[in-house]
Design a protein around this nucleic acid. Sequence first.
DNA 1: ACCTGAACACCGTTCAAGT
DNA 2: ACCTGAACACCGTTCAAGT
Lengths: 244, 244
Amino acid sequence: MTNVRRVTYSWPMTADARPRSRRDRPAKAPLSEEVIVDAALAILRAEDLKAVTLQRVAIALDTGPASLYVYIKGGRDELRQAMYDRVLSTVTLEPPNADRWREQALALLERLLAAFEAHPGIAAISLANPASTRPALLIAENLLAMLLAGGITRQDAALATDTLLLLTSARAIETDVWRSQDDGHDDQPDIEQHLHDTYTSLPAAEFPHFTELAEELIGPDTAARFQFSIDTFLDGLAARAKRD
Amino acid sequence: MTNVRRVTYSWPMTADARPRSRRDRPAKAPLSEEVIVDAALAILRAEDLKAVTLQRVAIALDTGPASLYVYIKGGRDELRQAMYDRVLSTVTLEPPNADRWREQALALLERLLAAFEAHPGIAAISLANPASTRPALLIAENLLAMLLAGGITRQDAALATDTLLLLTSARAIETDVWRSQDDGHDDQPDIEQHLHDTYTSLPAAEFPHFTELAEELIGPDTAARFQFSIDTFLDGLAARAKRD
DNA sequence: ACCTGAACACCGTTCAAGT
DNA sequence: ACCTGAACACCGTTCAAGT
């Protein structure tokens, strides 16, 4: 059989006119939800959630946005939920130990916070719907188990699980936004210095405490603020358990 | 002086050709930041934050989006901040009373939560930047004053103010989103029933507590969850004050 | 200084058509 | 069933031009 495909061209062909065979390019990885979420998370880690658009994810996969709908039927929102679940599934869990339930709970929430902070903007998704996917429920179950092991009432433990996860998400969202505001505006010194100046130059008649406590208000960093929030809440929870 | 303007037309003029005088239409209210924010809040109350686009606000004011930039130099984000400030300025404050600081703080936060809930989506703006506008600072100052009146340490009061406001915003955002998910999907019963079913039908081996405590996890409504969060945190705060 | 129409570069989603 | 190009109806923002 002669090689009928061997032809000569009298003119250089444009890229558009030449039929592109698979051999011309590295084989394209087939699409799948996993591959799509991978691409989305890569963009997320490099930039932030705002940059993760269907068009950009599609371009990263060398296709068009319409192609994504085969695997992500729910469109953008479903993609975001899938990204969120992937991030949550990296948080390591720990069997509850009655003697160190407080440290365990705090450590779990700190790991969750760290996972959020490694993925700019992802925390905002957590408030977008009640936890009902497996990775979110596994974290909640683990936290709930720790509180129950610590002797907290059933009803208190249930409500506390809700509050603690809410607080962690909120703190992460706050951090994300502060960070995204910091970028781009290189002219401003840093955001903390700016806030300190704002507070101290407030009219003292209307803002006696803000002007006086500017240091206390701004000093502690995110980690310290987070730990205070959780610790104080757990103090209250323990006090309730003793009171009953 | 004869009335030179009195003319007759031999042909009916098209709407485009006829010079439109002010008399032809009700006088158009002049633009201003106040008028723009009014229009934006009207759309917000009737629908939600997603519906408040510059194009829609402009149409409501019988103009184009470019016209808004005269008064809202910062574009969409500045408009959102202005809306947020207007909502916060409706929250009534109260001089601190050392004997009832806990009730006062809870009541203040409940009024803030109510203001958020009356304006779907507005709470999301609160996390978008550190409080530095007057209405936000006045609420924070008032809360801080209550905590200090209650004998809380300076540093604890500062951190607690931060946490309490964060918790209130987070709870409001959560409510907003639950509510917006409820709309449109009339086929689903209600969201609580659906969650209850989800929890009870989880594999008991992996989720022993979630399956058993479904009632406790879902039962309490938003108001009850909010009160628990704040109360428990204040318990912890009071316990810290006594301990020192 | 105020206002505007038109354009620009995006966005999520749908759909008819191809394989 | 999978993939695609093209279009649709939006979005925020900019800009030259008018008053």
